[in-house]
Every structure is written in C-alpha cells, then in structure tokens.
Amino acid sequence: MTALVFPALAFPAPRRALGLALLLAVGVFALLGPLHGLDPLRQDLSATLLPPGSAGHPLGTDHLGRDLLARLAHAARLSLGSALATALVAAVAGTLLGLLAALRGGLAERGLLALADAVQAVPALLLVLLFAAFAPGGFLALYLGLSLTLWVEFFRLARSAALSVLARPQVEAARLLGFGTGHILRRHLWPEVAPVVLTLFAFAAGTAVTSISALAFIGVALRPPTPEWGGMMTELLPFYAEAPLALLMPAGLIFLTVLGLHLLAGKEQAA
C-alpha cells in the first residue's frame, strides 16, 4: 500500500548509495591503478597469461605478458573519461536545444524535431561508424559521433518537460507580472528540467561506456595497443580457455560501471 502511494519509498536511498559506491570504486581503481607503476604497454613474452596473484602482477598478465592491472586501470580512465565527456556534450547540447524548441516553437522547433527524427532513424552505432570512417583512429571522431546520437534523447526529454511547465498557470502568471524569458528559464523551467536531465545523464553515460567498448571490440576508433575494456576482450577472446578470468575482468568492469550508473539514475525511474 505504502509502496503504491509513495513508489520512491520502495526504492530507498540505499539503491543510489550502492550505485554511487560502485562508481566510486571504479573511479578509485582508475585513479590509483596507474600508481602501481607498471607500463600498460610493456610486453614480457616470458610471462604470458599469468593467473591473478602472480608475483609482480596482482591480476596476472595477458597473452603478450602485459600487466592486466595496469591495462584495466588505464582502460577505466579512458572509458569513464570519454563516457562522461560524450554524455556531457550531448546533455548540454540536447538540453539547450530542447529548451530553445519549447520556448521558441514554430520553425525552429519543427526543424529541430525533424533533425532529431532523422538522427534516430539511423542506428546509433552506424552513425558512429560513419564518423569514425571519416577520421580513422581519432578519439574526437568517436566522441563526436557518440554525442551526436546521444543528444536526441536529452532534446526530446528537455523539450517535453519544458512544454508541460510552460503550459502551467505559473508561467502565465510570471509573464503577466512582467518577468522575462531568463527568469522563466531559471525559476520555472530549470527546477523541473534539471532532475530529468540528470537522470538521463547517468543512463547516457552508461550507454556511452557500452558503446565505446562495443566499438573497440569490433576494432573501430581505438586501436591496439591502447588499453580499452572492449578492445581487451577482443584480444583475450582466443585465450578464454586458458585464462577465463582475464576475459571476465574487463567484462566485469563494464558491467559494474553501467550498473552503478543505472542504480544512480534509478530513483527517478522508479518514481
């Protein structure tokens, strides 16, 4: 009964705390891992596929004898950093355009909606592949391509949230009292739009983590020997019979990161 009336109570703060804890753990791993001092690129062909717990290699080594801890930690930095960067660009652009569309209406709104439809009509990864093809090996093309697919949801969500607020008497009252668009943005729209956008941001970052890994897995944009979770899975896949743990580690990190982001975002979703 209580859960029906107050759905938020059914998914209390512990859920978000767990998400935050997971992300913090991955973040600490990304920051402290490199302090271990080993070069993620240094090969040692005399010590390949060592199991976790080996001397000098706490998590073992891969098929070229590279230290897995160093590689996973560097990859974590790359994944987290690029996921946050792409989601941020998408969030800022999408939200601003969504607010603009809701406020201006008319041709600007119709044009942006048509653009959003056009972007969504193309499968997201295909669009990124297209960008990557123009600038092979470049991080920037990857980020730009991802942001280009992610902004659409921010745009749609910000626009619909803003439209519902704009239809309320509170906005009409503010205009009658002589307040301008800046005031309406700040006092009426932002408090309503921000929570929705923040929730979507966590989901979008999760999507970016999986997308980057998926692209690296099929060998797009990020090239060996750059350590990347998806790329590491590709490299280790042929050796999964000998070193299953080595393959599980990058997969597990992707899982934990995306889980953490979704748990963090989950509160709004539940309510």
Binding site: P169, Q170, A174, L176, L177, P191
Partner: peptide, 14 residues
C-alpha cells in the same frame, strides 16, 4: 493582472 483558481499552480513549486 490575474488571480488564479488554483493558487498553488500559479507559483513556482521551488
């Protein structure tokens, strides 16, 4: 100027 039927709806909630 205008007074609204539902005063709550005429003020920003935050």
């Amino acid at each position: 100027q205008k007074l609204y039927q539902d005063p709550m709806a005429a003020f920003p909630p935050t």
